[in-house]
Amino acid sequence: MSTDIGVWIAAFLTLGILSFLYKDNPFYKVSESIFIGVSAAYWFVYMIYNVIEPNLLGNLQKGEWWYAVAGILGVMMLFRLIPKIGWLSRWAVAFMIGTGAGLNFIVYLQSNVMKQIRGTLAPLNSIGNIMMIVGVITGLIYFFFSAEHKGLLGGAAKVGIWFIMVSFGASFGYTVMARISLLIGRMHFLFSDWLGLLH
């Protein structure tokens, strides 16, 4: 059995979270509350040391004055707390949304559309390739919105959803492995690091 107080705290909290599987209870509620409080402070402190300090103050010190704009945008966000000038925070929000939309537009166009299309352009010389082309096309047809799914279109959409379902089943089955591994890791912590029953 461990003599490290930290391990005991960790074990106590681990059991607290696991107890949720039986039902919601005070033990879980305490662990949850600690988690919420501690993690909020963690991110706050982390942001100060890893973002505000190096990326904002560090760059300003180096004389890269345009980082002041980021500081101003940040302060603008805080204007929300003052009702009279709260509307100014929308400018900062608009900046985040606009640049985010532009960036995502490009990223998705390149990685979700172009690369995927490139990967689908294959010669029709094997069952695998023919299946790939049929699957992608019928899958896309399932996502047609402006036409009723009837007749040929409906049939294709149906095949599309078959593919999608097989994929969901396979991904689900595949993920089981990873999740079980994590549980094994936790159990190993309880029985080995804490109780010392496993060697």
Partner: peptide, 14 residues
């Protein structure tokens, strides 16, 4: 089948 359907969904999402 898995990869194919993911691709179709990915294109739609795109």
């Amino acid at each position: 089948p898995n990869m194919v359907a993911k691709r179709a969904i990915g294109l739609g999402v795109g």
